[in-house]
Amino acid sequence: MPEILALTAFLEASVRLGTPLALAALGETVTERSGVINIGLEGSIIAGALGSALGAIATGSPLAGLLAGVVSGTAVAACFALFAVVLRTDQIITGTAVTLGGLGFTGAVYQARFGTTGTALSLPTLDAVSFPGVARIPVVGSAFFSQPITVYLAYLLAPALWYVLFRTPWGLSLRAVGENPDAADAAGVSVVRTRLHATLVGGALAGLAGAHLTLAHTGTFSEGMSAGRGFIAIAVVVLGRWNPLWVLVAGLLFGTASALQFFLQTLGLDLPYQLFLALPYALTLAALAGWVGRARAPAALARSWPPQQ
């Protein structure tokens, strides 16, 4: 019986750690399908984390905080889009600048609001919502169906985004813009507007991922707590082959690998802890080498449009 409990706790941790990666990666999938690679995702995540903390403190409501996180993440993505999509700056350089700027700016705001030497916030958190039937399935039930609302948003967004991308006219034009912007433009699709929308969707979901970190997972905020998740999310997009359904699976898989490292360290095996920390990355490399092999990125990914002279 204790083994079963441990397994359930381990799976719960996997879902908690995988959800922010899945959310951010789902948004980035939409962005990349339109031919924009937003390396500034990390900036949106940390902005979402701080925005949701400030929102939750101001209103006392974690749901309002969640919304504030989404707005903050979108605002950072709007900065990126202004430069990379409208002004056609290099996407990689702009994204890097937005990440650095996001980390610095949130740090400045946090220190201005909570003191230079920091305060450990204890935020109102999102409670776990249990689905009466499925949550009682042994072992996996509570792991997957007794979680905060952000987790269910990830479950719902994956099929919804799949449907939008592959079964609606808007999704078709978005993918056309990502594959061949000239042809899309000739067909009357506004390339700039489509890419703008796709980038903002990406920012909103990255903001939601940040809000999950503060309001659904840790209940606190500290500078730099996004800790590279934006970059891992970009790898998750590749691992999920730019398909929202696989991206969700890839995000949760990565979460499982992260949870496993802490589980294994706690067992006190006499191995260097760095081996366990490398686990999620080793898994990604293996997956990229093996099964993603034949997947192809959107043809116009990272290319500005119209092309520079």
Binding site: L17, P20, T218, T220, G224, M225, A227, F262, L277
Partner: peptide
């Protein structure tokens, strides 16, 4: 247990 960095609050909480 070690988390491999100094700022990942989520990882520290899971550990």
């Amino acid at each position: 247990a070690y988390i491999g960095n100094w700022d990942d609050v989520s990882a520290a909480k899971e550990a």
